[in-house]
Design a protein around this nucleic acid. Structure first.
Lengths: 217, 217
DNA sequence: AGCTTGAGTGTTACATGCAACAGGTAAAAA
DNA sequence: TTTTTACCTGTTGCATGTAACACTCAAGCT
């Protein structure tokens, strides 16, 4: 039983590498993405690198200044709040749809993520965020609306660029975890409207907390 | 008072041309987008054409089959309903936000579009759709959330690919126009929740009508 | 000093060359 | 006839050449 070989194109590998470097912070916000320079480092020609860089622009992770190069996006607080606003809308739609379509396997996976998150909540905010992303990802993926999943995924990645703007205090992480539990409960009971409301309340609350945290009064 | 000259890059012109050709149906859904062929027709080299084609893939107007070329997407009814579902969510958010931020100039523009639509409603469904797109565009643009505007715009373009799936019967266009009027009324009264509800009801109703029209029972 | 000018460096954007690949068709083998 | 093979055609994907452009900085001018 042989599986088809996915033709490993150079551009795909480069895209993954660059995305990883950007999301991990290795390529910091504001960094210039020089095609010749990256090509030298990755030891490939400029063509696939140029293509990959433009794809990242399309994903919203980098911004293009016509004829003056591309650089990693540097999100402001306003940008992050925009993203939360949009995700509140999209993810709550996803939650409502997912409530009606989730398989028991999906629910188990979701529960697993939450349990892991509960265990990690002690102080490891890095792992916590990772699991948070996974939680939301499972929901949008099972919504059954592929475009919703794609756009939500794009927004999710974009938000990860705002690392220093997020809040890592334990009370906030605990609160998020509680809200995740509530969403999961609604999903398990297949209560679409409740899941939708809980998701919307969750993301709106987080956005408010982030805003308050960065605007002292 | 000289205006800055926007460096007209070949890739931008090609992208516009291809987008136009696709949205107008000149390049029909399913058509293969051969880079060398298009380069010959447009009388430019393959590089900017290749780039433009990949951008269209990123916009969702074309689909890439690894090493087997790119073709114009061919939307199914299910795809169109997915798009309506997502837009119902995004556009209703936009309507709520726009209610609080619209300037009187924006409101006048919106009214102008509606009046033109009312006049065109006689039987010119082509012009009607054009104005419909403009109506929604004004609202998402004035929402103040740039990402929302960008993603909604992408969805709007994608929907235009489903030409033959749309309904052009006059009673349906009239109904849409009425609902647009209602949305505009809520916006003019700066009633965010009402605008949100009206927009959501509008798009959900349209989606339902489209579904019913294509699934006889 | 403050401002132009111009050399120098590095990049972008476009053009083009070419190997590997995909798909079709016709000839050869079963 | 059906299957296999070989060949042919056109494309994709990567590499590379290069003109025009953008930025820096230091010399020259006011």
């Amino acid at each position: 039983m042989l599986k088809p070989v996915a033709s490993a194109r150079v551009v795909d590998i480069v895209r993954e590498q660059l995305r990883g470097a950007i999301l991990s912070g290795e390529l910091a916000p504001g960094s210039r993405l020089s095609v010749p320079e990256l090509a030298r480092q990755l030891e490939v020609s400029r063509s696939p690198v140029r293509e990959a860089v433009l794809l990242l622009v399309g994903e919203g992770l980098a911004i293009e200044h016509s004829r003056r190069g591309v650089e990693v996006v540097n999100l402001t607080l306003a940008d992050l709040l925009e993203l939360y606003e949009l995700r509140a809308s999209m993810d709550s739609l996803a939650a409502r749809l997912a409530a009606a379509r989730m398989s028991s396997t999906d629910l188990t996976a979701l529960r697993g993520v939450l349990d892991a998150q509960g265990a990690a909540a002690i102080g490891d905010w890095r792992g916590f965020r990772e699991l948070d992303a996974r939680f939301h990802q499972i929901i949008v993926q099972t919504s059954g609306n592929r475009r919703l999943a794609r756009h939500a995924e794009l927004l999710s990645r974009e938000m990860r660029l705002a690392g220093p703007l997020h809040i890592n205090e334990s009370w906030h992480l605990k609160q998020s975890h509680e809200e995740h539990r509530e969403i999961e409960r609604a999903l398990r009971q297949r209560d679409g409207p409740a899941a939708e409301l809980a998701m919307h309340a969750h993301l709106t609350r987080v956005a408010g907390t982030v805003a308050a945290h960065h605007r002292p009064q």
